[in-house]
Design a binder for these strands. Structure first.
Lengths: 63, 63
DNA sequence: TCATTAAGTAAAACACACTTTACAAAAATA
DNA sequence: TATTTTTGTAAAGTGTGTTTTACTTAATGA
């Protein structure tokens, strides 16, 4: 699973910590997801989508 | 998190076991997700979406 | 260059996703 | 009604997602 989080953050000039606090998760969670260590849970994927106002599929991709 | 799995299954006349084998997960996993015991992982949510040819948000909803 | 901020990473702990086996209850069908 | 199929549920085990604390490295700015 890869994702566009780094780009979406850059477009907004947000740090990983900024994004983490917007989503109420730890900075390490953001880092781990961004660097592909693991996938977010579905509820967290929904939070990303809501925050960025995008479909989950526009942020995360299966292959 | 609620979902439309029961309806989507009914439209296709599939049992929980049918859906489970199409997705290569256990029947108990399908049952637990349908009955709200837990949410699927994001990769499994993608598999549902691909199978039903729907967006994840058209199958699962956050509230 | 020095100090600060941002990003990467690691370990331990805990909660949740998923499996297998097994059984009971409900629904469908002969 | 009797049998079969489907659904619900439970317990134990494994693996993954997330947290906290903490340290290192990289990038930014005075």
């Amino acid at each position: 699973m890869n994702n566009r989080l780094k780009v979406l953050r850059a477009e907004r000039d947000w740090t990983q910590a900024d994004l983490a606090s917007a989503l109420e998760v730890s900075r390490q969670t953001i880092n781990a997801i961004e660097t592909g260590k693991y996938d977010p849970s579905l509820p967290l994927a929904f939070k990303f989508a809501r925050l960025f106002q995008l479909q989950i599929e526009e942020i995360f991709s299966d292959r």
